[in-house]
Write a protein that binds this DNA or RNA. Structure first.
Lengths: 182, 182
DNA sequence: GCCTGGTGTTCAATATAATTTACAAATAAA
DNA sequence: TTTATTTGTAAATTATATTGAACACCAGGC
């Protein structure tokens, strides 16, 4: 089961909503190069592949390591959460239906108008979070969604994503990133 | 800190004690290709790199993922083992001084004359074991070592290795492989 | 000494990847 | 509709990776 480099690149490019020309412009190669690679009509040099991936941005390691997982749920309502007991505390588990989870949880606070930055983030791994106060606007690929208190997300970090608090009150979320350190 | 493909390939090739010509013959490319790649005078095509790595054998993923760790101890005497208590049982931890361990332990039995096969094994990850009965001969790169009852090993799986029971009595070892499943 | 077989490197010729330029289909605006 | 823009693809050219055949070097045997 050799990896299909062309199809893989095409998938990643579309995740970023980039055309062959736009990606080639950012990568410093020609659109023909992208086209030929995606059709598997050439075996790109490491140089070229590295240039293309750097424009996404993505490392060679991530490119070869990433496994194309079947699409799973990205958003969860409160009733989709599973409650775990942990000593005296109680944890709400997000994405319990997803297999092979490997996450670490964080607590983040967003002031009104703040966000995760201009550009979308994309990297190998998984990322999840819960809104515990206020409202957060999440952009996932082309999909934009407002999550309110008690709602949650669970996405593949490869899908470009960004956060922004477009409301006028403070927003807090509990987020998790892979790989887990506890 | 871009990865030095040439140097990396050279290192792996030498771990297998292969000449450029021998590797090129197995990979189905010419010795010149190997030479130029190792000198970073060309950027190999994915096709070529894949062919070369397949002859080791090694996957593209492992090639780009592997981190060149500083050399650590490969062999341990009995007094180098750390004893762990686990309920009613007692575990002897091998390579306690090594950081970021991630192992799974097994129990293997070797009849006289048997071994792990002709060719040396090489893959990303770590591997460790303890001799609990008899004597095992371990070949690690060019180094050959006889381990007796109570002695142990902890090696990078990337370093080509093989086991063989050259004695006339049964040999048992407790081995461990990465990644861990418990 | 002179051989023989091994090593890694270099260079001209060849095979292939990347570019340049062009084309046709789809989309949007006038 | 017509015009302009953007999309992905294709052919010819250019650039580069790979090959094939040398080369110099080294170790061991005669």
């Amino acid at each position: 089961m050799a990896i299909d480099i062309g199809e893989r690149l095409k998938t990643i490019r579309k995740m970023h909503n980039l055309s062959q020309r736009e990606l080639s412009r950012r990568a410093g190669v020609t659109n023909s190069t992208i086209s030929l690679i995606e059709q598997n009509r050439v075996s790109p040099s490491i140089d070229s592949l590295k240039k293309v991936l750097a424009a996404l941005p993505m490392s060679l390691i991530d490119f070869f390591t990433m496994d194309m997982k079947p699409k799973q749920d990205s958003f969860f309502s409160r009733e989709d959460l599973v409650e775990l007991s942990d000593g005296g505390s109680s944890l709400l588990l997000v994405g319990a239906t997803r297999r092979n989870r490997k996450l670490r949880v964080l607590h983040e606070i967003y002031a009104p108008g703040s966000g995760s930055g201009e550009n979308m983030i994309s990297h190998e791994g998984e990322e999840s979070g819960v809104v515990i106060k206020g409202t957060i606007q999440i952009t996932l690929g082309t999909e934009v969604r407002d999550l309110k208190e008690g709602e949650a997300y669970y996405i593949d970090s490869l899908m470009p994503h960004s956060f922004r608090n477009v409301s006028d009150e403070e927003c807090q979320i509990v987020s998790a990133a892979t790989p887990p350190n506890f």
